[in-house]
Design a binder for these strands. Structure first.
Lengths: 354, 354
DNA sequence: CTGTTAGCGCATTCAG
DNA sequence: CTGAATGCGCTAACAG
């Protein structure tokens, strides 16, 4: 069904139909005829051809590392909100945490085309840089800092440091206890390098140290967190706190701790008394995370974590993007968003919620 | 950068460039010149125009109700796997559980266009039916039964019944205890009607009944599960099991139970002894779900739930779709996938993992 | 207000 | 093998 067929059926020119569709000048009578024909035929104009002509698709593409993530869904929620308010629709592409796929999907979006691209970034490789420099559609990066595009990111270092300090203080209650850290690849400047460096800085500020044998690198998956935590528990018997770079990893670590305790004999005493006790085989190892995952909080009562304004970063990112798409705003913007430390109920008192 | 500019720079015709790009006849020498120019300019052909010509985008659109869901991500994982094996890419659109948006995004995909659409369905409205009948691109529906398109769905009724029987048997240990059910809208034939009806049938088979005051309807969100469960706990003091239509809702219910117990005085006894005890204000209310959420299992140790072959349904759905896209397969297919009941460790013995 | 016309960037005839 | 010409479906001048 093409516009010309509609025009013929309605006995008008194709231009008239086009104008009808786009709110131009059409006399009342013809308007009726056209309307009727469109009704009957169920005609829908081809975005395809329209976009070829107008260079405008009212679509923005969002590239995400994975689908099944609370933090990412909070970002896309913010993005989607702004987009729909301003008459755009959102298409998503998931890369399954493969950085090269990020570039591939951005290219697909670029010449599909969409009006703008939002990248929820994991790492900025040479490929990324090349694309960002050459892209013919505007891009904004969320979650990573880059000077090659407008970006909005979070204070991961500050968050890490706050967590490091909190852990350092908690550690003071366990004279011989140590903290461990399960991070993610440092190629991820935000969730990898910044959080870990901040964490170490925070620990140091409290007079603690994080040695190499107390560190692990995990993928962004619960299973990977499980493995890393289990390995730590087996190798080091003085760990009393395991801090993780994400709440998802923390969930895996919690599972590992449950299993570890199951294997290494049942608990002999309730934990409720002992804030001064530390682990030698069976005491309560505590876990911290980043991201303020609500699901985790609901079923566990909560662990110490950091709340990032993910939805806000989505909103700001989308606004930035549309500003350059529509108003051709040319001034580069880098936006850094703060964080909020989230304490766990009863945690600093020594007990983690059951 | 258009194909014509490349042609000029290479000193050939646009047709030659087009052939070069699509593997047609080009002499070795020209091939080199074209290759060089494309390298230098970083030219990328417009899918846009190409698709307008060829009617083929090597793209399929997947419409999902929400992003942040383990079950949905398992489906899209399966879909993405098949697609990428066969040279297609996957674009996602999330509807935030609004059925009308499902149709809207299918229309966007239809005339964007993509080669095929996969709908992870929540409900089939009149709008949906209209679209499925008239769509010019093939659609397969995953998760719901429909005769208007190829579909692959799960045995939700059977799963519900299995759960109903299990709950019924567990209930026998609590002479005066009752089960409650938190469902979702019955407009969702699969997760709503089928699971609930199956559940009731299963209960009945064990000689139990599910009265109206023991039912609630929730949205697909943890918070909604929390509210529903809290309401049940407050209104009925003989509930010992709350069965939920999804694991996400179950997580909310678990949180509600934690909170409820916190408010209504601390536990006086350990739960470990008492399989015969039932709740009067403070005993262990148990929760069941559907979907086999791994995150939930990790942090809680697991609740009774049902495993659906979500990834498989994604794989099968994508294969079905590509068969009609590529081979123009015309025989309608309806595929029903079974389920697997997942017991909770130590549950039937009366104790839920802490 | 209306119809005619000229492309948008590309793939594909069809003559060379 | 190659290039010129045609049109995919639509919108935006433009001349009525």
């Amino acid at each position: 069904m093409t516009i010309r067929e509609i025009a013929q059926l309605a006995g008008v020119s194709n231009a008239a139909v086009s104008r009808y569709l786009n709110g131009g000048y059409v006399s009342g009578e013809k308007k009726e005829r056209i309307k009727k024909v469109i009704q009957e035929t169920g005609y829908q104009p081809s975005m395809q051809a329209r976009t070829l002509r107008t260079k405008k698709a009212c679509l923005v593409g969002v590239v995400v590392p994975k689908i099944n993530s609370e933090s990412i869904s909070r970002v896309t929620e913010g993005v989607g909100q702004v987009l729909s308010e301003r008459g755009y629709h959102m298409l998503l592409a998931s890369t399954d945490n493969q950085a090269d796929k990020e570039v591939m999907y951005m290219k697909i979006f670029e010449n599909y085309p969409v009006d703008g691209i939002i990248l929820i970034g994991t790492m900025i490789t040479a490929q990324h840089r090349k694309f960002l420099k050459e892209s013919r559609v505007p891009v904004v990066v969320i979650g990573q800092y880059t000077r090659l595009a407008n970006c909005v990111y979070h204070d991961d270092y500050g968050a890490g440091k706050a967590m490091g300090r909190a852990v350092g203080r908690a550690l003071a209650l366990y004279p011989e206890g140590r903290a461990a850290y399960i991070g993610v690849t440092r190629e991820d400047k935000a969730a990898g390098a910044a959080r870990e460096d901040g964490f170490c800085a925070g620990l140091k500020a409290e007079g603690q140290e994080l040695e190499e044998e107390y560190r692990r690198v995990s993928r962004f998956r619960m299973e990977a967190g499980y493995e890393a935590a289990m390995d730590l528990l087996k190798k080091k018997d003085d760990i009393v706190i395991i801090s993780c770079a994400t709440d998802t990893i923390a969930a895996g670590a919690m599972e590992a701790i449950l299993d570890y305790r199951k294997e290494n004999g049942p608990e002999k005493e309730s934990d409720t008394d002992g804030s001064k006790r530390y682990r030698f085989g069976n005491s309560p190892v505590k876990v911290t995370g980043f991201g303020d995952n609500q699901f985790l909080k609901a079923v566990t009562g909560g662990i110490p974590t950091v709340h990032f304004a993910y939805k806000t970063s989505g909103i700001k990112g989308a606004e930035l993007l549309l500003d350059v798409v529509e108003k051709e705003e040319r001034i580069p913007v880098e936006m850094k968003l703060g964080f909020q430390f989230v304490e766990a109920p009863g945690w600093s008192g020594g007990q983690q919620a059951e």
